[in-house]
Design a protein around this nucleic acid. Structure first.
Lengths: 207, 207
DNA sequence: CAAAAACATGAGCCAAATCTCGCATTTGCT
DNA sequence: AGCAAATGCGAGATTTGGCTCATGTTTTTG
């Protein structure tokens, strides 16, 4: 199956009983783990089923195809991610430009730490629903920037938020591939990058 | 075949005759095109052979497996890439910090423009040979930085070069996925990011 | 309890992709 | 021309992984 083809990803059947709910939940957790380890393409449905102490048949009882599984994993993450950024909006005003810049990096890192499959899921083409979710998150970041410096203006804040997301995603990709020894260094340098980019914009009067 | 498994990628047979050399060259060009279009995973050996007006048999006569083809494509690029960065070393001293920063971005862009498969090739795990090549390129970037500001010192320059490569790769990934309308904007913002990061390091006395 | 609905299973179907192999053709050389 | 090596070919062997389905078990419902 090609990554680029769009399939129906709506659940084939919603679990009704306790047993079913437990199973679906276990399947999703396992799917996340396997996808995180091997990437979307190399993750196989049989391995997901096996490692969830389930069977292929059960897996397909709830999900019509592989994409649907990935989509469901992604869906699971959204709420938590959104909350992370919302929290940042709350404290942004109290932070210095440098602190805020660094915080943007660490929040991202904490997110992928909690949701290791997130990066691998970038391989699969986002559904329109996912696009909307992503836009929502961008707005959250923009809100954090505006909470810090209201004079920025909405459109400017949104634009900067895009760049922050861009840079962050680049960071995460590399962070994920690097080994433990390199990671600390990568994080520090990327904080420097964001500080260099953001601090002037957050300080100057003529935004 | 898993992406993560390492295979023997040495050529099965080196072309001796004119005919063979032409064919191998056509196969590599086509392979680059197909990989650029579809990515490594989705590129198939049959399509490469077909579009090179060749046959599966001929393809496997020269390359033992798919990875070997990708590796050969990557190998082809190295020389040209190295030259691009070497050119920059020559002019770096004459540029302002801002100009140099922007130049680092545009050189990268020109490279992927000339070698569209380059990004897709990041999917496949680098061989030790590729690592060495990559390190060479990092040294080139560091040399450009030192040509601009000799006081930087070698170790500092190398470290900054790493970050430049990191940021650039992030840019390219996103650049490749975006459509034409967004690209100009992405490029400009990334220049701003690099300027923000580099300018202070290239200007200040206490590096 | 009996019937229905939900859930579980895994052998195997099927399509797709990699790679082999035996044979045909071309090239380069003397 | 004639020979050997190089090259070309593509049917099909093999593997792999998504997915179906017939059959069996557990839970709910009336």
């Amino acid at each position: 199956m090609s990554v680029s083809s769009r399939l129906n990803t709506t659940p084939r059947r919603v679990p009704q009983q306790r047993r079913g709910k437990r199973r679906v939940s276990a399947l999703l957790d396992t799917a996340a783990a396997v996808i995180a380890e091997k990437g979307y393409e190399q993750a196989t449905m049989s391995e997901i089923a096996r490692r969830a102490h389930s069977s292929i048949g059960s897996l397909y009882q709830f999900f019509p195809n592989k994409q649907a599984v990935a989509e469901a994993v992604r869906e699971q993450y959204i709420e938590d991610i959104n909350r992370s950024w919302t929290d940042l909006v709350g404290v942004a005003a109290k932070l210095s430009p440098e602190q805020l810049s660094r915080r943007l990096v660490t929040v991202q890192l904490e997110i992928v730490e909690r949701h290791p499959a997130l990066l691998a899921l970038l391989e699969i083409p986002p559904t329109s629903r996912t696009w909307r979710r992503r836009e929502l998150i961008r707005v959250r970041v923009a809100m954090a920037l505006m909470a810090h410096k209201p004079r920025l203006g909405e459109s400017k804040a949104l634009r900067i938020a895009s760049v922050v997301q861009l840079v962050s995603r680049g960071l995460l990709t590399l962070y994920a591939k690097s080994d433990d020894r390199e990671r600390a260094g990568i994080v520090e340098e990327f904080k420097a990058v964001l500080v260099g980019y953001l601090a002037p914009k957050l300080k100057s009067q003529r935004g």
